[in-house]
Protein backbone atom coordinates (compact mmCIF):
# COMPACT_ATOMS: atom_id res chain seq x y z
CA UNK A 1 0.00 0.00 0.00
CA UNK A 2 0.96 3.63 -0.30
CA UNK A 3 3.97 4.69 1.69
CA UNK A 4 2.06 7.73 2.88
CA UNK A 5 -0.40 5.49 4.67
CA UNK A 6 0.13 5.03 8.37
CA UNK A 7 1.30 1.59 9.31
CA UNK A 8 -1.88 0.89 11.30
CA UNK A 9 -3.95 1.49 8.19
CA UNK A 10 -2.23 -1.20 6.16
CA UNK A 11 -5.01 -3.50 4.98
CA UNK A 12 -3.00 -6.70 4.98
CA UNK A 13 -2.29 -6.44 8.68
CA UNK A 14 -5.97 -6.07 9.56
CA UNK A 15 -7.57 -8.78 7.48
CA UNK A 16 -8.40 -11.28 10.24
CA UNK A 17 -9.68 -8.63 12.68
CA UNK A 18 -11.72 -6.79 10.09
CA UNK A 19 -13.26 -9.94 8.66
CA UNK A 20 -14.24 -11.06 12.16
CA UNK A 21 -15.79 -7.65 12.83
CA UNK A 22 -17.70 -7.77 9.56
CA UNK A 23 -18.99 -11.25 10.33
CA UNK A 24 -20.09 -10.04 13.79
CA UNK A 25 -21.76 -7.00 12.20
CA UNK A 26 -23.52 -9.34 9.80
CA UNK A 27 -25.08 -11.01 12.81
CA UNK A 28 -26.39 -7.62 13.91
CA UNK A 29 -23.55 -6.42 16.14
CA UNK A 30 -23.62 -2.66 15.54
CA UNK A 31 -20.66 -1.95 17.81
CA UNK A 32 -18.48 -4.26 15.67
CA UNK A 33 -19.51 -2.28 12.61
CA UNK A 34 -18.87 1.04 14.34
CA UNK A 35 -15.42 -0.20 15.21
CA UNK A 36 -14.73 -0.75 11.50
CA UNK A 37 -16.03 2.74 10.77
CA UNK A 38 -13.62 4.21 13.33
CA UNK A 39 -10.68 2.30 11.88
CA UNK A 40 -11.26 2.83 8.17
CA UNK A 41 -13.09 6.13 7.66
CA UNK A 42 -9.93 8.14 7.08
CA UNK A 43 -8.64 5.65 4.53
CA UNK A 44 -11.97 5.51 2.70
CA UNK A 45 -12.00 9.32 2.66
CA UNK A 46 -8.54 9.39 1.09
CA UNK A 47 -9.62 6.95 -1.66
CA UNK A 48 -12.84 8.87 -2.30
CA UNK A 49 -11.07 12.22 -2.42
CA UNK A 50 -8.52 10.90 -4.89
CA UNK A 51 -11.36 9.73 -7.13
CA UNK A 52 -13.80 12.65 -6.88
CA UNK A 53 -11.26 15.46 -6.21
CA UNK A 54 -13.79 17.37 -4.12
CA UNK A 55 -13.85 17.31 -0.28
CA UNK A 56 -17.64 17.68 0.01
CA UNK A 57 -18.32 14.95 -2.52
CA UNK A 58 -15.66 12.77 -0.89
CA UNK A 59 -17.36 13.07 2.50
CA UNK A 60 -20.73 12.28 0.91
CA UNK A 61 -19.17 9.26 -0.77
CA UNK A 62 -17.71 7.99 2.51
CA UNK A 63 -21.03 8.33 4.34
CA UNK A 64 -22.90 6.71 1.46
CA UNK A 65 -20.30 3.94 1.40
CA UNK A 66 -20.76 3.07 5.08
CA UNK A 67 -24.55 3.12 4.84
CA UNK A 68 -24.33 0.90 1.73
CA UNK A 69 -21.89 -1.40 3.48
CA UNK A 70 -24.26 -1.78 6.43
CA UNK A 71 -27.17 -2.56 4.13
CA UNK A 72 -25.10 -4.99 2.06
CA UNK A 73 -23.60 -6.91 4.99
CA UNK A 74 -25.52 -10.01 3.95
CA UNK A 75 -23.45 -10.12 0.75
CA UNK A 76 -20.15 -10.27 2.67
CA UNK A 77 -19.28 -13.96 2.76
CA UNK A 78 -15.82 -13.72 4.20
CA UNK A 79 -14.17 -15.19 1.08
CA UNK A 80 -12.75 -11.77 0.14
CA UNK A 81 -10.64 -9.65 2.48
CA UNK A 82 -12.72 -7.12 4.38
CA UNK A 83 -10.52 -4.32 3.06
CA UNK A 84 -11.19 -5.40 -0.55
CA UNK A 85 -14.93 -5.36 0.14
CA UNK A 86 -14.70 -1.90 1.74
CA UNK A 87 -12.58 -0.54 -1.14
CA UNK A 88 -15.24 -1.84 -3.54
CA UNK A 89 -18.03 -0.14 -1.61
CA UNK A 90 -16.24 3.21 -1.45
CA UNK A 91 -15.13 3.21 -5.10
CA UNK A 92 -18.73 2.52 -6.11
CA UNK A 93 -19.93 5.36 -3.88
CA UNK A 94 -17.29 7.73 -5.29
CA UNK A 95 -18.20 6.74 -8.83
CA UNK A 96 -21.82 7.39 -8.02
CA UNK A 97 -20.87 10.91 -6.85
CA UNK A 98 -19.03 11.56 -10.11
CA UNK A 99 -22.04 10.34 -12.13
CA UNK A 100 -24.43 12.55 -10.15
CA UNK A 101 -22.61 15.65 -11.32
CA UNK A 102 -24.36 17.85 -13.78
CA UNK A 103 -22.36 18.50 -16.93
CA UNK A 104 -20.12 21.48 -16.37
CA UNK A 105 -17.61 23.49 -18.30
CA UNK A 106 -14.31 21.61 -18.16
CA UNK A 107 -12.00 22.78 -15.42
CA UNK A 108 -9.41 25.34 -16.31
CA UNK A 109 -6.08 23.58 -16.25
CA UNK A 110 -4.75 26.14 -13.87
CA UNK A 111 -7.74 25.98 -11.54
CA UNK A 112 -6.76 24.88 -8.09
CA UNK A 113 -7.61 21.30 -7.22
CA UNK A 114 -9.19 20.82 -3.78
CA UNK A 115 -6.44 18.30 -3.15
CA UNK A 116 -4.03 21.21 -3.12
CA UNK A 117 -5.22 21.55 0.47
CA UNK A 118 -3.69 18.14 1.06
CA UNK A 119 -0.34 19.38 2.06
CA UNK A 120 2.72 17.68 3.42
CA UNK A 121 3.46 18.24 7.06
CA UNK A 122 5.52 21.32 7.84
CA UNK A 123 9.13 20.56 7.00
CA UNK A 124 10.74 23.80 8.04
CA UNK A 125 11.32 24.39 4.33
CA UNK A 126 8.52 26.72 3.18
CA UNK A 127 9.78 26.92 -0.37
CA UNK A 128 10.13 23.14 -0.68
CA UNK A 129 6.68 22.64 0.86
CA UNK A 130 5.13 25.10 -1.57
CA UNK A 131 6.76 23.34 -4.52
CA UNK A 132 5.56 19.97 -3.28
CA UNK A 133 2.03 21.33 -2.84
CA UNK A 134 2.11 22.71 -6.34
CA UNK A 135 3.32 19.40 -7.72
CA UNK A 136 0.63 17.45 -5.84
CA UNK A 137 -1.98 19.89 -7.16
CA UNK A 138 -0.80 19.30 -10.73
CA UNK A 139 -1.00 15.53 -10.35
CA UNK A 140 -4.47 15.55 -8.83
CA UNK A 141 -5.76 18.03 -11.39
CA UNK A 142 -4.46 15.73 -14.10
CA UNK A 143 -6.04 12.64 -12.48
CA UNK A 144 -9.37 14.46 -12.11
CA UNK A 145 -9.41 14.98 -15.87
CA UNK A 146 -9.30 11.25 -16.64
CA UNK A 147 -12.52 9.43 -17.37
CA UNK A 148 -13.75 7.37 -14.36
CA UNK A 149 -13.01 3.99 -15.97
CA UNK A 150 -9.34 5.04 -16.09
CA UNK A 151 -9.28 7.01 -12.85
CA UNK A 152 -10.42 4.13 -10.61
CA UNK A 153 -7.72 1.57 -11.48
CA UNK A 154 -5.11 4.32 -11.59
CA UNK A 155 -5.96 5.62 -8.10
CA UNK A 156 -6.06 2.11 -6.62
CA UNK A 157 -2.84 0.92 -8.25
CA UNK A 158 -0.63 4.00 -8.48
CA UNK A 159 -1.80 6.04 -5.47
CA UNK A 160 -3.12 3.40 -3.07
CA UNK A 161 -0.34 0.99 -4.03
CA UNK A 162 -2.56 -2.07 -4.39
CA UNK A 163 -1.44 -5.16 -6.32
CA UNK A 164 -2.99 -6.05 -9.68
CA UNK A 165 -4.85 -8.90 -8.01
CA UNK A 166 -6.30 -6.63 -5.32
CA UNK A 167 -7.38 -3.96 -7.82
CA UNK A 168 -8.94 -6.61 -10.08
CA UNK A 169 -10.90 -7.96 -7.12
CA UNK A 170 -12.09 -4.52 -6.03
CA UNK A 171 -13.18 -3.56 -9.54
CA UNK A 172 -14.47 -7.07 -10.29
CA UNK A 173 -12.59 -7.39 -13.58
CA UNK A 174 -10.07 -9.97 -14.73
CA UNK A 175 -6.35 -9.21 -14.68
CA UNK A 176 -6.10 -8.98 -18.48
CA UNK A 177 -8.86 -6.38 -18.66
CA UNK A 178 -7.33 -4.51 -15.74
CA UNK A 179 -3.87 -4.39 -17.37
CA UNK A 180 -5.43 -2.98 -20.52
CA UNK A 181 -7.40 -0.31 -18.61
CA UNK A 182 -4.41 0.60 -16.52
CA UNK A 183 -2.14 0.85 -19.57
CA UNK A 184 -4.56 3.36 -21.14
CA UNK A 185 -4.97 5.20 -17.82
CA UNK A 186 -1.22 5.59 -17.32
CA UNK A 187 -0.76 6.92 -20.84
CA UNK A 188 -3.67 9.30 -20.41
CA UNK A 189 -2.19 10.58 -17.15
CA UNK A 190 1.24 10.98 -18.73
CA UNK A 191 -0.39 13.00 -21.50
CA UNK A 192 -2.18 15.15 -18.93
CA UNK A 193 1.02 15.67 -16.94
CA UNK A 194 2.74 16.86 -20.09
CA UNK A 195 -0.11 19.32 -20.67
CA UNK A 196 -0.89 20.59 -17.17
CA UNK A 197 1.25 23.67 -16.54
Amino acid sequence: MTEGVDADERATERVPDDSALLMAAKEGDTSAFDSLVRTHTNRLYRVALRIVDDPVEAEDAVQEAWVSAWRALATFRGDAAASTWLYRVVTNAALSQVRKRKPTVPLDLAEESPLAAVSPEGTGDPEGTALREEETRRVHTAIARLEPSQRLPLVLRELEGMSYEEVAEVLEVNITALRSRLHRARLALLTELREVP
Partner: peptide, 19 residues
Protein backbone atom coordinates in the same frame (compact mmCIF):
# COMPACT_ATOMS: atom_id res chain seq x y z
CA UNK B 1 6.05 9.98 -13.00
CA UNK B 2 8.12 11.00 -9.99
CA UNK B 3 5.43 13.60 -9.33
CA UNK B 4 2.78 10.84 -9.15
CA UNK B 5 4.88 8.83 -6.72
CA UNK B 6 5.36 11.87 -4.49
CA UNK B 7 1.63 12.69 -4.65
CA UNK B 8 0.87 9.10 -3.56
CA UNK B 9 3.12 9.57 -0.54
CA UNK B 10 1.54 12.87 0.49
CA UNK B 11 -0.77 12.25 3.46
CA UNK B 12 -4.43 13.10 3.03
CA UNK B 13 -5.96 14.60 6.13
CA UNK B 14 -9.65 13.93 6.68
CA UNK B 15 -11.75 16.96 7.60
CA UNK B 16 -12.33 17.72 11.26
CA UNK B 17 -15.34 15.83 12.63
CA UNK B 18 -15.68 13.46 9.66
CA UNK B 19 -15.85 10.35 11.84
Amino acid sequence: WGAVRRAAETPVRAPEGLL
